[in-house]
Write a protein that binds this DNA or RNA. Sequence first.
DNA 1: ACACATATGTATGCTAACGCACATAAGCGT
DNA 2: ACGCTTATGTGCGTTAGCATACATATGTGT
Lengths: 278, 278
Amino acid sequence: MCVAAQTFLRSNALISPSIHFTTSVIRLEGEYMRTRNRQDGFLNRSAPSAPPVNRLLATLPKNEYKRLLPKLKTVNLVLGELLYESGDAIKDVYFPNDSIISLISEVSERSWLEVGMVGNEGMAGLPVFMGVSSSSIRALVQGSGTAMRMSSAAVRMEANRVGSLHRLLHRYSHSLLTQVSQSAACNRFHLVEARLARWLLMTNDRLGAEAFPLTQEFLSHMLGVRREGVSKAAGALQAGKLIRYSRGVITILNRRGLEAKSCQCYAIIKAETDTYLN
Amino acid sequence: MCVAAQTFLRSNALISPSIHFTTSVIRLEGEYMRTRNRQDGFLNRSAPSAPPVNRLLATLPKNEYKRLLPKLKTVNLVLGELLYESGDAIKDVYFPNDSIISLISEVSERSWLEVGMVGNEGMAGLPVFMGVSSSSIRALVQGSGTAMRMSSAAVRMEANRVGSLHRLLHRYSHSLLTQVSQSAACNRFHLVEARLARWLLMTNDRLGAEAFPLTQEFLSHMLGVRREGVSKAAGALQAGKLIRYSRGVITILNRRGLEAKSCQCYAIIKAETDTYLN
DNA sequence: ACACATATGTATGCTAACGCACATAAGCGT
DNA sequence: ACGCTTATGTGCGTTAGCATACATATGTGT
């Protein structure tokens, strides 16, 4: 958690790392607890038509799922938590239920970019399955919720036997690569407003909530633009009554409208993500 | 080959598709043949300290390599050839020797972006290994040369048995994802000139040649910028005597200088690519 | 109620890259 | 040698997004 906050705020270079560290832990945990308490189940998740479980795991045949169950542990992931850092050993992998994990690439202290988003359709920690112990990509919790955690050792076992999980992870790898490629092109060609709309929709899909805590500062790192750019784009979306936001909480008011503002990339990525499990 | 040229020139929307098709086949093949004839072994490949073989295959243990050999066929790949198109079934996979294959993502008729580059360190057609028959990413020959071709059916067999190739392809998948992520960030944050320098260096590494046929038009699609932008950036590099070019042929004059002009991304990607095989 | 931290808005000037239009140049086929 | 095609250069107005600086607003703890 400490590490999480440290990274989360690393961009603010004016304050010394240690100060950073302390204040941001407080800030993050504080913010989270507050929002959770203010309104029970703050996220306003819509009535769960489907129970919030990881769809990748849910697709496994029963016997295989049973075999894996002892190795899986439900854990809570909190916004801002850093699951693994660039270059560090990956100790566990995560199958999100209703949480979201961002895969982030960094080219400099202040320039980050989300290259992929992992929700209940996938797993964070693919490098382990691929036989690599660390990655240059950072995994940061972008939406609070639960996930199923599995040790890297257990994942490495799965890499050695071709079973249902093995095959599913292959399909997922392809899906993720597609997502990363599509958003690379999207980030290159599309305007900030469209990309913001896409990002909010993707988050909405995975979180199953209409409102979620996110500052513009955080968003700016996801989209790879300045905070002021997010302010402008978000302001435009709010003016159009598509979203509402205040002090780190964003609420989606009009999904259809957001879809119209977003680029095709949203639909393309969603189609890929939704169909690979079939 | 027809399809190749069709796609290669698709951006020129002023000419009808059929005209396109015919003229561009001629143009491409013509250009290639001309350059090949003009000077025997036009590419001026540097003295092959290492023989030009696919390094992924070369890393296999001997017995496994022998097992695969009957399934591999050496083929010639020609600049502009389209190995598989977005959405179409992938019939074969390719292990480049001294050829290069570009993985390209498209967001509109005129907006393309190279998301990954495959040389002798890898394989084009990973989706097949991952159990998917087609991909939204296009594979286009970006540098002429030879490659080892293997049928998709044979690759699917390999996906079902965990052997050396299986493990290597896992490692390669991770390497490719890293490359795609890094260039996504690079394309987002770095200037055209730096990206062009990086791209030329990466091509130089894989082609093993100082001079290679490439128009600015082609380059613009790789970098996801306008042709005029390439003209400006290439002009600057030429003014600095780092490269020389004329009518579709680029020559690298000063590698060190290019490395200085490029961003760190070149070194980062190269390190990943060079070390995953060990 | 107040002070404080932090989230968000906004203004100004700047630059890279865009879109369009056209000029030049180099090679090729006849 | 000539004309054609194609590759490359360049100028001009526009724009999205950057950097910096500062203003405002909104929760929170005391």
